[in-house]
Amino acid sequence: MQGLALVDYDNLCPRNRSELEAEIRTSALLDSLARASQAAFPGLRHRAAGPVGRTSATIWRVSDTLTRADVDRIARLAHLELTEAEAEQFTRQLGDILAYFDRLNRIDTTGVAATTHPVTSAPVMRDDEPRPSMRPDDTFANAPDRGAERLFRVPKVIG
């Protein structure tokens, strides 16, 4: 059980918002989600299927456990090809780990600032002066496919 994840729509970055919107448009859970969240929080507005306008909204997601579909989705995001056995194993293991993380919800963090970094220091500036950088031969020395030239060669990108 992942519990309920509260999504503060207005604080999502645009990319995450559009992903979220796309996900909600296609979610089979949408109707039951909408009913459940409105029953629990009568004042709550929720996103509906269809194009999403620029309104403030708070969305509750309900999910029983980490599903195989979740694992497949994450693997795509992470550019990992998984074997069938790995996908099954990760569904189970990551589900256990995420369930263990739920204990963080015992802590009230209302109003607590987020620590992104252990030291807070002023931006480090230096003069913008030309200086030598890595030699091209060194730069390409570890490339798995550098062709005959000094370049990084990759499979065809555009059809």
Binding site: A5, L6, V7, D8, R15, N16, E19, L20, E23, R73
Partner: peptide, 12 residues
Amino acid sequence: TYALSAGYYDAY
């Protein structure tokens, strides 16, 4: 990737 993905960032 999961913890940073859309819909889970805040929760995790």
